[in-house]
């Protein structure tokens, strides 16, 4: 995706000049590479190593082989957190992608006030998960919440105890998440829509294609490269769901919204079992990487 701009470097003549050139390049990158290695690369490697150890908050790590993974596989709580998170991914990722695309289509139409609508949908992007969680706890409140009131107006009775019942808590978290983050996908798809050459539509229209056919046979295929990274990034973000759950339910009721990230948080920073938490982190990483590879394969990107 990035290729060096042509020309700016003449072919390197002597080996000294070549080494000097390399040194200059790495000198420029050094400050970032220090940050990258210390706070990204090294922690990632240590994280994988830690997953094979017993490691408390103090003291030396002890190598325990695959024991942490064995514990996790046999842990009901962990398996449930995986199931809950998968359920959340299904509930949230699909609407985030589809709705993101549809919203982009909508605000791409030549409509008056579309810029205002775009800005409003985008607003939640700058709001922290803490504030979002607070606002939505109030909106989803059972007896005086806004959502139940308007659902009641539409004939949905009795009021739903959104965050209080195991069946509805995860959908409620998903609704909150969609409201909060769909704007990212909308903006990416919008940028994609603006890049589709006008001629494609013109020639199709000459052939008598209608609006739906234009969307189906031009817009969606032309946005495929964009979907190739929107889909994995959305799915990865959903697998990592944490803040909404932390603020709104703390994993409850009855563990119904206890996610993998919540498991990692509690295991590492409440019970200080660093090795076990790292193993859960590795499993999370393997799941998201596995999904990304399968999805990119399916879309014939790799």
């Amino acid at each position: 995706m990035t290729s060096v701009a042509k020309t700016m470097d003449r072919p390197v003549t002597s080996s000294w000049a070549s080494i000097r050139n390399d040194l200059v390049a790495y000198a420029f990158m050094a400050p970032y590479l220090v940050l990258f290695i210390l706070f990204l690369l090294l922690p990632a490697i240590v994280g994988v190593y830690a997953s094979f150890t017993k490691w408390g908050i103090i003291g030396e790590p002890q190598w325990v082989g695959l024991r942490n993974y064995d514990k996790l596989i046999n842990s009901e709580i962990f398996i449930e957190s995986l199931q809950n998170t998968l359920y959340f991914v299904i509930l949230a990722a699909i609407p985030l992608i589809v709705l993101g695309f549809l919203l982009a289509l909508l605000v791409h139409q030549k409509l008056r006030f579309r810029n205002i609508a775009r800005a409003i949908v985008f607003l939640p992007h700058v709001v922290s998960v803490a504030a979002v969680g607070i606002i939505f706890q109030w909106i989803l409140e059972r007896s005086s919440g806004l959502l139940n009131y308007y659902l009641g107006v539409l004939g949905v009775n009795p009021p739903i105890n959104w965050l209080g019942e195991p069946e509805s808590a995860m959908p409620a978290i998903a609704i909150t998440t969609i409201w909060w983050t769909v704007n990212g996908n909308m903006i990416i798809y919008l940028a994609g829509l603006q890049d589709i050459p006008e001629e494609l539509y013109e020639s199709a229209r000459i052939d008598g294609a209608n609006g739906w056919q234009l969307t189906r046979h031009i817009t969606i295929p032309m946005l495929l490269p964009i979907s190739a990274f929107v889909i994995p990034l959305t799915v990865i973000a959903c697998w990592r769901v944490f803040g909404q759950v932390f603020v709104m339910t703390r994993g409850g009721p009855q563990g119904a919204t206890f996610t993998v990230a919540q498991f990692i948080y509690e295991t590492a920073f409440v019970r200080f079992n660093m090795g076990l938490a790292s193993a859960a982190g590795v499993i999370l990483m393997l799941i998201t990487l596995g999904f990304t590879v399968v999805q990119l394969r399916a879309m014939k990107v790799i």
Partner: peptide
């Protein structure tokens, strides 16, 4: 593509 959770503990 790296989920940041893996970095938290280290």
């Amino acid at each position: 593509l790296l989920p940041g959770e893996i970095l938290l503990v280290p």
